[in-house]
């Protein structure tokens, strides 16, 4: 698959539509950054629908605040390298419509 005609999206514009009650305790934690450094594919940078994961300064930055709690990274990480919990009760994304 090529990237032909794939539009660029500013994900912040989409996340801005949603309401979040951000917990100060992150619910997503990288178990071992060394594993990410050696991961060739880094699929989390692709499939995360909220662009929670970013590769910066040779490590994965986790922007858990905008997480939509879908679980894609929990299942899709090839090395099972993400400690994945739901945010504590009452926190996280709060959908108002569908």
């Amino acid at each position: 698959m090529t990237s032909e005609q794939i539009p660029t999206v500013i994900i912040e514009d989409k996340l801005f539509l949603n309401r979040f009650l951000v917990d100060e305790i992150p619910h997503l934690v990288i178990k071992d950054q060394k594993i990410c450094a050696n991961c060739q594919e880094k699929p989390c940078l692709t499939f995360c629908p909220a662009r929670v994961y970013e590769w910066k300064d040779e490590k994965i930055i986790v922007g858990y605040e905008g997480c939509l709690e879908c679980g894609a990274c929990r299942i899709g990480c090839c090395f099972d390298n993400i400690e994945w919990e739901y945010p504590r009760g009452g926190f996280g994304v709060q959908y108002r419509l569908a």
């Binding site: 698959m1 990237s3 005609q5 794939i6 539009p7 692709t46 499939f47 995360c48 899709g76």
Partner: peptide, 14 residues
Amino acid sequence: LSKSKIKPYELLES
């Protein structure tokens, strides 16, 4: 999707 390198929101936008 992982294989395609297309992000889900790009797919939706497209």
